[in-house]
């Protein structure tokens, strides 16, 4: 017996075993790290997602539940970041000398993988205007963004132009992916922490739904009482 997940992969719906899903997520996180310094990493990754969906369609047929072996097969065809650097095709600029550059790229990539350092991002989950203050609070380790917000308000009152906020909003990127949110908080990026945050998100939603349902119930009860 296994849990299954419904996903949208590149615009196609799929039902997939939970272990296969974990493997796939791990793969896309590794791609995100690898392509992170390219011009349009999300576009490249989305193209690969679409291609993976096509491979699933070709191999598994319409109604099958995707298993770990389907995902492994697709990853083998698409290639992992290790394959890309071996192939040397992906790395554009610095490969005048094959052996040497291959090695240095390898070690660069490795240091990137294990770097847990914080990066500054705007925090879209905790924002009033653009998430600049909460992003700064995350970066500086201030426990509550309200202090940074207060500081900004004081700055504006004391005559400093609010333009500074707008400039910060433009130059600081928004944390869009789970990996970026982790980086923003300085948490290590691996599959378990990402799974944890997805779970948190889900629990959050269920709580919200419960709250909504309860308030609906009490409203109905009140109405009934009035009628009596």
């Amino acid at each position: 017996m296994k849990k299954i997940v419904n996903i949208n992969l590149g615009g196609y719906p799929f039902t997939i075993d939970i272990d296969a899903y974990d493997k796939m997520e791990e793969y896309f996180v590794s791609l995100e790290k690898y392509f992170g310094e390219y011009d349009n990493p999300h576009e490249i990754i989305f193209d690969i997602e679409v291609r993976m969906a096509e491979l699933f369609k070709e191999n598994a047929g319409e109604h099958a539940i995707l298993s770990l072996s389907d995902v492994d097969k697709a990853i083998k065809i698409l290639g992992t970041p290790e394959d890309f650097s071996k192939d040397n095709i992906v790395d554009d600029e610095n490969n005048e000398n094959d052996e040497k550059s291959y090695k240095s790229e390898e070690s660069n990539r490795r240091s990137y993988e294990y770097r847990v350092g914080k990066k500054i991002y705007r925090d879209p989950d905790n924002k009033v205007i653009g998430g600049v203050c909460s992003g700064l609070a995350n970066y500086l380790g201030v426990p509550d963004p309200i202090w940074i917000r207060l500081l900004f308000v004081l700055l504006f009152v004391s005559g400093i132009s609010p333009l500074i906020y707008i400039i910060l909003m433009i130059i600081i990127p928004k944390a869009k992916t789970t990996a970026e949110r982790k980086e923003m908080r300085g948490e290590p990026i691996d599959i378990d922490t990402i799974a944890q945050s997805i779970e948190d998100e889900f629990n959050n939603l269920t709580d919200q739904f419960k709250g909504f349902r309860d308030s609906f119930k009490t409203k109905r009860q009140k109405r009934r009482k009035r009628r009596c």
């Binding site: 392509f35 011009d39 490249i44 291609r51 290639g79 394959d83 192939d87 095709i89 554009d92």
Partner: peptide, 14 residues
């Protein structure tokens, strides 16, 4: 000419 398919997408993107 290509070994793994994933190499095509960054190339096209570039």
């Amino acid at each position: 000419l290509i070994v793994v398919e994933g190499t095509m997408y960054p190339l096209l993107n570039r």
